[in-house]
Design a protein around this nucleic acid. Structure first.
Length: 841
RNA sequence: GCCCUCGUGGUGGAAUUGGCAGACACGCCAGCUUUAGGAGCUGGUUCCGCAAGGAAUAGAGGUUCGAGUCCUCUCGAGGGCACCA
């Protein structure tokens, strides 16, 4: 009989789908060991499933099937991250509602996933665009608001002119939009911002305990960018004003030869009247303002700037007057927006000083003498040119001395910026806030007088954002209104702003006319808590608000044991979700500090040309075609066999043929041997079988699927050659193969297994994972490697209990070895029991 | 510029973590087979050499009885951050 994968796969997919996929439905069983295996849920794009999805989803499916057989209670859910630009852009183009687009795409994705035989708990399926889902996204936002972690501010933001919306810092790659690659512009806009910086320290520190790839930890660490230093005041000469700077190197203060203010620094306008070159300064500020992010980055090597003539600052250590400049190499958003420049010890200052012929004073030297510096010296050394008190000290000691002397404040700064959280687009969660002029007046006054108004007590968010009133919990969700036109307006408002009926509401606090917030949440909002939504999915459906945050269930399943997905979310989704989780922990909605205990990044599958797959390169591999031609089992197996899960690997078009052949051989092997019905157990084969059980078990747990498959291939190769195979051996092979290629394994099981004759197939999902017999794995004899001077010369089979004396006697008596050793007495003999002997002459 | 990861046959990749380099596959070569399919079977396939043997894990040094694996430097590739003071 031929291996008819199409028929087999269809047959079992149908069986598994019975009763809404009840086989894989996870229930909370007390005392059972639980295992939460999570995939990064897809954005259901119009293009359908990609081979990259298949890679990660196959890996998690193997784990899920394996742990189920090991008796774990496995939660392995799937859902849809369906808000966002592509659906909206497609909808605009095709004039269909985005919700309709999402519906179609989800249907297609689900079909594709099922055709690959992934064992998801579909009863827990969630969709971020479902109002019953985003109700709780909005609810979490309101909790953030009430705790003062959401605030409205006019901030410089990244604006994508093509997508006509603001972007978070994390969404800007090389000065370009993460989605459409358009150059972003800087704009000052009033935006909702989440105070992720309040969690900077914990987001950094708690990375330590996570079982994550070093690379991702490193990326988050760099993104958070903690640096310790001190704030130093530089008095402005003939003035009471001070210029505050942040530095990590107070030891270099004696070498400060000028100060630089960011073009946006408030002091520039304050000192306006005293600047003697106002036109030059104004002109510079103007050009700086119009520079794009791109241009600024391009200017790294050529620093521009202008001196604020007429203004001098005083070096607090030397007492010397130094010039004050402004330059856009100083960022307004970091530290104090002003720096002390130490050209001798900071490369950027060095370049600036060279460019404008400013003095360079070396104060730290490795040799203790002044050198002719070709670039800034950033290392440690001895203080020079730093005054009697400091000269000769090591710079680290000098650092402490200077901080003490100047009574400076130690200070920690972060690169991490608060999360710009509003988008000027239609297809996102409405931000559930209402602006009320009436309440604004009262909120402003509420700090000074007891509120005796219609407005109840003000929460932190309302005090921080006067006039903004949260939509009451019972009115959630704030549903996206259906509109005819969802084109972005190109202004700071979303298309929702045009719907008067929706915008104009009564203030839920005082009843006066008020207006809804019309911006929507960013793409990332829904994915910040979807792993919790799966657990709570039952409660999502019944629409009861009571006990929605079912802590017992959350405690049962959390944290996620294994989380598999691409590395592209390292500082986006993974940082945002950690932030929300920590916040939910603080308000006691969840018990764990972190959401995802173990993270695995599947490596990119490259095109056959070793380049990233892309439509423009024409090197995209389509999984549908492969399933059609070779079957889902072959595709799954090949993607796992390609190489280590975490490595980037090129697609080899012929590679899938190899694993397809393998499955054919398994099929034929079982078919043929079933007829011969051998009774005698082949001892050698039995040993190999048990070794393979051990190997596959260990490799699956270590996610080393490529070597697990290779060991199965070795086993099958040997079985083909074997004189006799018994049924129980074949059954073990089908079990071992099941997580990788479930359809063929299940089919063979139904033909050979205990229920074969009854016609009522038992499912492998409910069978036990094979155990190996330790006795069959440990061999009595082993091959002793014989080395002379570290070079392999011969091998000999000996008992595993062979002592060094016995081995020496045996080996030194061998003719071949005598030749290599010669007549001289061995200098030294190394003996590694059970492995090798090395004779050194 | 800084940080991270990685360099093994014609190709994807193995190597029990310091102990037989190249498992398992793809491809290729030779033969068989014919049911002519991208899919069967057998054998071969790192390089030099007829062989004994020698060389070889990007390159150069080092540690070690022993290094693909550890250390130092150089070269190369991929990724991340990028004027963060």
């Amino acid at each position: 009989m031929k291996y008819d994968f199409k028929k087999i796969e269809k047959k079992w997919q149908k069986t598994w789908s019975k009763n809404d996929y009840a086989v894989w439905h996870a229930e909370e069983k007390p005392r059972a060991r639980e295992m939460y295996v999570l995939d990064m849920f897809p954005y259901p794009s119009g293009e359908g499933l990609h081979v990259g999805h298949v890679e990660g989803y196959t890996a998690s499916d193997i784990l899920s099937r394996y742990y189920r057989m090991r008796g774990f209670n496995v939660l392995h859910p799937m859902g849809w991250d369906a808000f966002g630009l592509p659906a909206e852009n497609y909808a605009i183009k095709k004039k269909v509602h985005p919700a309709e687009v999402v519906k179609q795409n989800v249907k297609r994705f689900k079909e594709q996933l099922n055709k690959l035989g992934f064992s998801y708990d579909w009863q827990r399926e969630v969709n971020t665009t479902d109002p019953e889902y985003y109700k709780w996204t909005q609810w979490i936002f309101l909790q953030l608001f009430e705790k003062g972690l959401a605030y409205e501010a006019e901030v410089p933001v990244n604006w994508c002119p093509k997508d006509k919306t603001v972007l978070a810092n994390e969404e800007v790659i090389d000065g370009c939009c993460e989605r459409c690659s358009e150059q972003v512009e800087r704009k000052n806009l009033k935006q909702w911002v989440l105070k992720i910086t309040a969690y900077a320290d914990r987001l950094l520190k708690d990375l330590e305990d996570l079982d994550w790839p070093d690379k991702v930890k490193e990326m988050q660490k760099n993104w958070i960018g903690r640096s310790e230093g001190a704030e130093i005041d530089f008095p402005v000469a003939n003035s009471t004003l001070k210029i505050k700077v942040f530095t990590t190197r107070p030891d270099t203060i004696p070498g400060v030869t000028y100060l630089v203010l960011a073009p946006e620094h408030a002091l520039i306008s304050q000192l306006d009247a005293r600047i003697t070159n106002p036109n030059a300064v104004k002109e510079y500020l103007e050009t700086a303002r119009h520079k794009s992010e791109r241009e600024r980055i391009a200017d790294i090597r050529q620093k521009t700037g202008v001196e604020l003539r007429g203004i001098k600052a005083v070096n607090p250590l030397t007492g010397k007057e130094i010039p004050v400049w402004t330059s856009d190499y100083v960022l307004s958003g970091y530290g104090t927006g002003a720096i002390m420049a130490v050209p001798a010890h900071d490369q950027r200052d060095f370049e600036f000083a060279k460019n404008f012929e400013l003095p360079i004073v070396q104060v730290i030297s490795l040799t203790g003498r002044e050198e002719d510096l070709a670039s800034a010296y950033g290392g440690d050394g001895i203080m020079i040119n730093a005054g009697e008190e400091l000269n000769g000290l090591g710079n680290q000691l000098a650092k402490e001395t200077i901080i003490e002397k100047l009574e400076a404040h130690k200070k920690v700064n972060y690169k991490l910026r608060d999360w710009v959280f509003s988008r000027q687009r239609y297809w996102g969660e409405p931000i559930p806030l209402i602006f009320c002029e009436q309440c604004k007046k009262q909120a402003v006054n509420s700090k000074f007088q007891t509120p005796n108004s219609k407005h109840n007590e003000f929460n932190e968010g309302e005090i921080l954002n006067p006039g903004w009133v949260p939509v009451p919990e019972e009115d959630l969700p704030v549903e996206l209104p259906k509109v005819k036109n969802y084109e972005p307006t190109g202004s700071a408002e979303s298309p929702l702003a045009g719907i008067d009926k929706w915008v104009n509401v009564k203030c839920p606090q005082c009843g006066e006319p008020a207006k809804r917030e019309t911006n929507t949440m960013p793409q990332w909002a829904g994915s910040c808590w979807y792993y919790l939504a799966y657990i709570l999915s039952e409660k999502l459906k019944v629409k009861s608000d009571k006990d929605f945050w079912d802590k017992k269930s959350l405690d049962y399943w959390l944290p996620v044991d294994v989380y598999i997905g691409g590395v592209e979310h390292a500082v986006l989704h993974l940082l945002y979700a950690r932030f929300w989780h920590k916040f939910l922990h603080d308000i006691e909605a969840v018990s764990t500090k972190e959401p995802f205990q173990r993270l695995v990044n599947q490596g990119l599958i490259l095109g056959p040309d070793n380049q990233k797959m892309s439509k423009s390169r024409g090197n995209v591999v389509n999984p549908d075609e492969l399933v059609e031609k070779f079957g889902a089992d072959s595709l799954r197996l090949y993607e796992m066999f390609m190489g280590p899960l975490e490595d980037a690997k090129p697609w080899q078009p012929d590679g899938i043929v190899g694993v397809h052949r393998f499955l054919n051989r398994v099929w034929n092997l079982v078919g043929e041997k079933r007829k011969t019905k051998s009774e005698k157990t082949d001892d050698k084969l039995e040993r190999l079988l048990h070794k393979t059980i051990k190997k596959v078990t260990e490799d699956v747990e270590g996610l080393k699927f490529n070597t697990a498959i290779s060991s199965l291939m070795i086993l099958v190769n040997e079985m083909e050659k074997a004189e006799s195979i018994v049924n129980s051996q074949l059954l073990l092979v089908t079990k071992l193969l099941f997580p990788f290629a479930p359809h063929i394994a299940q089919e063979l099981w139904s033909q050979l297994g205990p229920s074969a004759s009854s016609g009522q197939a038992s499912l492998l999902d409910h069978e036990d994972w094979p155990k190996y017999d330790e006795k069959l794995i440990t061999e009595e004899d082993f091959e002793l490697l014989i080395q002379v001077n570290g070079k392999l010369r011969d091998k000999v089979m000996v008992s595993k209990n062979t002592t060094q004396e016995e081995a020496e006697k045996l080996v030194l008596g061998m003719e071949k070895i005598k030749e290599f050793v010669g007549k001289a007495k061995p200098k030294k003999i190394i003996f590694v029991p059970g492995r090798l002997i090395n004779i050194v002459v």
